[in-house]
Write a protein that binds this DNA or RNA. Structure first.
Lengths: 314, 314
DNA sequence: TCGCTCCATGAAAAGGTTTACACTGATCGT
DNA sequence: ACGATCAGTGTAAACCTTTTCATGGAGCGA
């Protein structure tokens, strides 16, 4: 319709600088008037790039993840990539299979804090360009946050309030994030001369916090740090039911800063992890990886959000 | 490698019954040992089916939607389809564009309560097979819930508790769901002889509830039904801050039954809408639509969840 | 034994792009 | 005025499947 060959059409659209300006404009106008867009499947066939990214999350119902998905989504669309989403429903066994299935149709994958074992994950990352979000494995590009610094802020805050004995409610043993948090917390409390009572491991969910709340009280601590906000909310819930005042009797501190943290009463003091930013950074790293660059790792800052659930020690 | 042509390979894998059993097995073994899987893009080129579905949600940060996404996701994977996710960030203007971009790469789209204007939506559904979730438009397949019945349960519950004057905090004017809820609520309250005070419209979010809470109190009602749970939680938050007892002074009732509803104190009484089920049903309808069946509409049941935020009228 | 049917398989086209290569005409230097 | 260069464009192959059509051989009835 523009009186040119298909080759010129393709050039006018994807490498505009090589066609004469008037031809280019004509082609583009006709394309627009026809609503023509190149078929991505056909293009992928020859370029080897699909323009699609895969994103894997363990459980979208955990409010931590939707924010990450949003970040990935937004950044990917900016870069004109579409996003395949897979939710494993915390099914570790299914994870690898899902990734492999998706791998065929994408240029690369963003894996969001998978529980998968390290060797498996490493193998996967050799098969398909992969970026890890909130998990770190040597040699695999990853986005994480400064857990150590976050913990330091949290503990310093509690110390400043006069707390000397702190409980930590641990998350799943197989979770990398939990191991990191424990490690950071031990280091920080040792340095601060604070006594640390570890308990758990609980499921990283509301009911996990509910189930461990009574043990926390029995430990006679004046403050408790939870693996994440959901667990902290579970603690708050059970404390309220037992008539334990927060922060009067015990201070509660979470991790993640999910939206709910602000909505409950008392609002939850928590260490905010970058979520949308992490998703965006994940996509950035992945796209750069696809372009041959080899940026290995990015570590984002954390920020203590002081709200109502922490106060002076009893 | 199996000593057969590509044609036989494709047959052995996709229409096994037409090749001789021994050939079939040989091909399959070789395929497995090579880790061969047909390239979906190339297949799509000729079959016209991509095996991909598109899913559009207005805001993944609204806890109502992740559940739906999970449902869509799960059902799609069962049917061996992958899911493209798009989050419009409540940007109505971008919605149609996003859908059109995605439309090229998918067999069909599940549109989750889009704000888009009806004519636009109708046009879109002519361009690409479409199923609407939580929105109904004549002639377009859709999945909704029995709002009227849900409202009846809610109002009957309040009436049984002795409430005679009820406020409704409306959601966005452009939202179909809001219009439905208002319509149902008016019908039900009229029949029950209950006085209805409507206020709003507010954003369907926590801060929407916070911002309207004082007006609700000023209206001197004994119970309030919120557009959705987030708004209800906003109300609870502000009531708590003002020292208004729930349900002592005022009963609060939400809509949706998002996970948070159970986690706050007092736990929120709410009308549960099927979420995962709606997502699954959406995929079911879409797949059936793609097979030429024309199931037009599905309406799922709702269920009042009585929790702590409602009690006898003051 | 002949001809027919039917089953299993192969050859080739088709699907919508991109890209290597070839070609044309104009510009430039001499 | 001639050849070389270069910009702009077209031709055709390639990407990886699926599917239509053709082919060959076996089985069967007469």
């Amino acid at each position: 319709m523009a009186g040119v060959s298909t080759a010129t059409v393709t050039r006018a659209l994807s490498t505009p600088e090589v066609v004469r300006p008037d031809t280019r404009e004509r082609v583009r106008e006709v394309a627009a008037s026809l609503g023509y867009h190149p078929n991505r499947a056909a293009r992928g066939l020859i370029t080897g790039r699909t323009g699609n990214l895969g994103l894997l999350v363990p459980d979208l119902a955990n409010p931590f993840f939707p924010s990450i998905v949003k970040g990935v989504q937004a950044r990917a669309h900016e870069a004109d990539h579409a996003v395949f989403l897979a939710d494993t429903d915390e099914d570790v066994a299914a994870e690898a299979g899902l990734v492999r299935k998706l791998a065929k149709q994408v240029d690369g994958m963003v894996l969001c804090s998978p529980r998968m074992a390290e060797p498996e994950l490493r193998k996967l990352s050799a098969e398909v360009p992969t970026v890890l979000v909130y998990r770190r494995i040597p040699g695999v590009p990853s986005v994480t946050a400064e857990f150590l610094d976050g913990m330091r802020q949290a503990v310093n805050h509690l110390v400043a309030l006069g707390h000397k004995e702190i409980a930590y409610v641990a998350g799943p043993r197989s979770s990398w994030a939990n191991r990191e948090r424990v490690r950071s917390l031990r280091a920080v409390t040792r340095k601060a001369g604070v006594e640390l009572a570890e308990m758990g491991n609980v499921a990283p969910q509301f009911h996990g916090g509910v189930s461990v709340a009574d043990r926390v009280l029995a430990a006679k601590v004046t403050a408790v740090i939870a693996y994440n906000d959901l667990v902290a909310l579970g603690l708050l819930h059970r404390f309220a039911a037992r008539g334990v005042a927060v922060p009067g009797d015990v201070s509660v501190l979470g991790f993640d800063d999910i939206p709910l943290a602000e909505m409950v009463h008392p609002a939850l003091t928590t260490v905010a992890l970058p979520k949308e930013e992490a998703g965006q950074a994940g996509v950035d790293l992945l796209l750069r990886l696809l372009d041959g660059h080899q940026e290995v790792r990015r570590e984002l800052p954390t920020q203590l959000m002081v709200r109502g659930s922490t106060g002076p020690a009893r």
